[in-house]
């Protein structure tokens, strides 16, 4: 183990090259519905148990399956209503289990990024060949099912190794959602190629708010609005990124969807000069084209100061 993987340099928030999103927008806004598959009786990883109870953990597994049976359509309907295209954090195995959900997302021109093969298969203790196999499976499966070349990655259940980030760059991924150090994208230090960290969220992530902060559905909506207001103000100085990560098994419940919908209505009610509603890939591509070099140069020049 190391004290720091040195994936990025310290870079003060103040005085960075100014980012302006398309149409002069101050906030690049994206929504990332996690479409996940949890196996009922997965093989055991020595670092983490998939379920708290012996298999079949019908309480937990049932609650996750709810997302794909019931919650998903409710979430998709709300995104449709406010004309937001999702960037799907996809457990790749779901392409085989529920191709119907993939087709519906394709019809809406949603983006897919990889969230590992299953949310019950963790990266801990994988050797390099195994970790490569996960990425190759992801790239091949998504290309075959959707015609999209994967651009983004969020490790399954946020489980990593020391080499995860380097491998993403080597395989040509554009962005990683695994790092939470900032509210703007930024270049990541990798052995080969280029990679940026893309602001995802472990704050206004539905699971975190409901299960860690024990927030009510209405509080969740208020937190989303408050975050947006703050990033809109700060975005006038340097464009910010806001992501709402969702899980249909959480926000898709009928007692929760309204609180979320109100927040989405609020954000998408802003002018296009304020908010750019985009996908992860679109934000990453725009950043590479316009700001990657300037930011990388600034980071190198400031040497953490």
């Amino acid at each position: 183990m190391k004290p720091d993987l040195e994936l990025y340099d310290y870079w003060p928030y103040e005085g960075r090259p100014k980012i302006t999103w398309p149409n002069g927008a101050k906030v690049a806004f994206w929504v990332a519905p996690n479409i996940e598959f949890y196996e009922l009786n997965p093989p055991v990883n020595p670092k983490r148990a998939a379920w708290p109870r012996p298999s079949p953990d019908v309480l937990m597994a049932g609650s996750r399956d709810y997302g794909n049976r019931v919650g998903h359509r409710r979430v998709m309907d709300v995104l449709d209503k406010y004309k937001v295209r999702g960037s799907v954090s996809l457990n790749i195995g779901l392409i085989d289990h529920h191709p119907e959900l993939i087709e519906e997302a394709k019809e809406r021109d949603w983006e897919f990024f990889s969230h590992g093969i299953y949310n019950t298969r963790y990266t801990y203790e994988m050797d390099e060949a195994q970790e490569r196999a996960i990425l190759e499976d992801s790239l091949e499966s998504v290309m075959r099912a959707t015609g999209q070349k994967l651009a983004g990655y969020l490790a399954p259940a946020l489980t990593h190794t020391e080499r995860t980030i380097d491998l993403l760059a080597e395989y040509g991924f554009l962005y990683s959602c695994d790092l939470f150090q900032d509210d703007t994208p930024q270049p990541v230090n990798v052995k080969s190629g280029r990679l940026i960290s893309m602001p995802y969220s472990l704050e206004i992530n539905d699971i975190i708010v409901y299960n860690a902060y024990l927030g009510t559905p209405r509080r969740y909506g208020q937190m989303i609005k408050d975050q947006f207001d703050q990033l809109l103000v700060e975005g006038a100085d340097c464009g910010t990124v806001m992501c709402i990560p969702l899980h249909a098994y959480a926000v898709g419940h009928p007692h929760r969807i309204r609180g979320f919908e109100e927040a989405l209505e609020y954000i998408t009610g802003h002018a296009k000069e304020d908010v750019w509603v985009a996908t992860g890939r679109e934000i990453a591509e725009y950043y590479y084209e316009n700001y990657y070099d300037a930011c990388a140069t600034d980071i190198a020049a400031r040497k953490g100061g």
Binding site: P43, N45, P46, E125, D127
Partner: peptide, 8 residues
């Protein structure tokens, strides 16, 4: 420690 190949 590495994972058995059955993990994939």
């Amino acid at each position: 420690m590495t994972l058995d190949k059955s993990y994939l």
